[in-house]
Amino acid sequence: MGVDRRKFLKIAGISAALGLGGSVGWQLLRPGQLDAAEEPWNTPYQWVTRDHGALKEVPNPRALKGKRWGMAVDMKKFTPATAKAAVEACNYYHNVPSIPTKQDIKWIWLAPYKNVFPEVENPMAGDYTDMDYITMCNHCDQPPCVRVCPTKATFRRDDGIVLMDFHRCIGCRFCMAACPYGSRSFNFQDPRPFIKKQYDGFPTRAKGVVEKCNFCAERLAVGKLPYCAEASGGAMIFGDVDNAGSALRKALRGRYSIRRKPNLGTNPQVYYLV
């Protein structure tokens, strides 16, 4: 088919993950059928047969496109309930297990200010340093995890999202040593028994590989916003950092924002509005 493995993954893996409503991961359409299709797709790609019989992948026209995705987290807008909802939505829809040991898996979680922003403590600041902060992968512009990975199992997409190929990862955990934000987790064991209720729209992982927040790449591909942003009640604003008109840029314009460990040169793309 002339599709290399990684491209196949991009298409099939994510589509299979999104096989909602009983539809298969991707669909084969007859010539001309694409134009006739009225129902909006819920898969990232569709295969279309051309007149001469060749297959062509067509991306979902509703897919969100960005030059560099980023997130603003407005801690003032969060209530304890919405913060919890954002975390729980991610955990459920990504089959993140809950393991009651120090070998736990975390994609997005809450931690005190002094832990999320160590060395930026300010005992006089009051209010905003007393809160718990949402913590997740920063989808760095210069990600150290990508730099150290010996197999390119973790990679940065052109739109800035740092992703994992769970089928290439050898489990060396170099990326965990490299991440300055503690955003990565390793499957020390088979995670499946620790998933309370399995969501069939996203793959579960196997023991021995590293995982982390994926900025809901599978959602963007079908034109939807990340789960956490959706559940946050407007406290998490997702958008294109490079687009001056984006909701994210608007949110960042009027407010003072801080980022985690900007002195390390990673250029993190999660901004905290304080």
Partner: peptide
Amino acid sequence: LGKPTRILNVMLYPTPNSIL
């Protein structure tokens, strides 16, 4: 290694920016 059976990936996908 978490996935020892994949150790050859280091050679199949050589990555000079990785010190490993």
